[in-house]
Amino acid sequence: MIDIIFIILSFFAIIGGLGMILFAQPIYSALSLIVCLVALGGVFALLSAPFLFMVQIILYAGAIITLVLFIIMFLNVKSDNLPNEPYKIPTILVGGILLVPFNLLIIKGFSTLEDKPMHIIGEGFGSIKGFGMELFRNWLVPFELISILLLVALVGAVVYLRKEKSDG
């Protein structure tokens, strides 16, 4: 059963990713990226990480990509603003062939791990409580640094988007 769900989810993820790099209009790319990210959220749920599944759907697909969609609509991109890309398909094909040895190397490295049952664990593994305990016991300093990083990103975005002087 988990096999079938995993195959369906990975099919949608790969189709969404391919659609993202093949569409010419950025709005279609953002929509297919949402399909891909929701399918990856399902893969997180299969890997017994229900909190990350929730975060992926709410934060990634719901907030970040929706922000991208808002920016695309806000910029009012006409088709003559889009770059002319005559070598898109050949570059993707040649690059895909060139990436095969790299992928084979990584997969060969991971295939030395011995098999273990990967079924879904219940009993609080990946739940909000266990996650919070792990985060605030062992990862407190990175958590605080992330808050500073988000503050810096907020200030940086405001500084970039200030009204420019007339010569700008």
């Binding site: 790969i14 790099i21 790319s29 889009l82 570059t91 993707i92 690059g95 895909g96 992928n103 997969i107």
Partner: peptide, 21 residues
Amino acid sequence: LAMILFSIGFLGVIARKNIFI
């Protein structure tokens, strides 16, 4: 699955000129 998606993302970075993509 993760390596296929990583390759797709890498190809998107090197093959596309649209900065959103």
